[in-house]
Amino acid sequence: MSARILTMSRAGREALDWEMERRDDIFCLGEDVYKFGGIFGTMDGFGAKYGPERVISTPISETGFIGMAAGAAMEGMHPVIDLAYIDFIGVCYNVLLNTASKTHYMSGGAVKVPMTLLIGTGGGYNNAAQHSQCLHATVAHIPGVKVVYPSNAYDAKGMLHTALRDDNFTIFLTHKATAGVGWMGTPIKTTLSEVPLEDYTVPFGKVKIYREGTDVTLIGLGMSVHECLKAADDLAKDGISAQVVDLRSLVPLDRDGIMAAVAQTGRLVVTDEDYLSYGVSGEILATIFERDPTILKKPPIRVAMPDIPIPFSRPMEQAVLPLAEKIAKQARKLMA
């Protein structure tokens, strides 16, 4: 049979289903997961298949149920939590910051906390300042947690298998616009992949070179990878060869991979839908300046969300998002 083309949402569901069929330590919890199957349908149909003991719909009480999950993980279970949107981490941040992430270290390695937290990020569809944020830097800043951010279906399945087999806490981010769920619009073609039926893992901490190029490097993560790919198509019309790098994983961060990629072109545009200041885009530049700034031919440019609440109004939101035309414009400046 031909290879199937899956959305990120379906690919993730397949990984979780495969692991749940074979392991009884995994259980799911979150708001409406039993009937609704999670914000991107990662647990779609799991209520009927696995029953209410393994697919637990919770009240709107993130501190309570994520704290409960951390406790269950310490006792040997592997909870998989659907937290819907990352804008809601404020109400459970203590569990992430102090409990799930620190217990392994503070117990001298005696207590493991194997749990996977699924969170949707990002905007672009007029959902206003409290439902459009990326905030990935806010979780990547916490020592003791792995943070991964696949941007296509193949990586989503492989990285979710990796997270579910990890002995400790992983935050698994998916940008809403990349998930490929129908109510968010027609899936973006570059998020869809041929996905093997069998299980496989994609290791954390390796960048992916989405597109080879020799003139300028465009670094993205989550949705901004796809904007970089669009920008690269546009730049090609002017004969500019753009390399597109997907970070894929924030913790661990593939600093060697970033250096190797940027060294190939010497020109860099870093894109990030998270806020500009104190974030991933600055971390990438700091890595280059600490390791070897001589690989750069020009000062690098960041295209990121300005440090303002994200506007509801469509024209205003479009104006602040790191979209392809802005990325291409900055890349052209570097080529001038």
Binding site: M1, S2, R4, I5, L6, T7, R10, G180
Partner: peptide, 20 residues
């Protein structure tokens, strides 16, 4: 149609999920 899960011209088997 949200998407076709197989490309045009692909081999499919009866009962395969082919589209959303």
């Amino acid at each position: 149609i949200v998407l076709w899960l197989y490309a045009d011209g692909a081999k499919v088997k009866q009962g395969d999920l082919i589209a959303e």
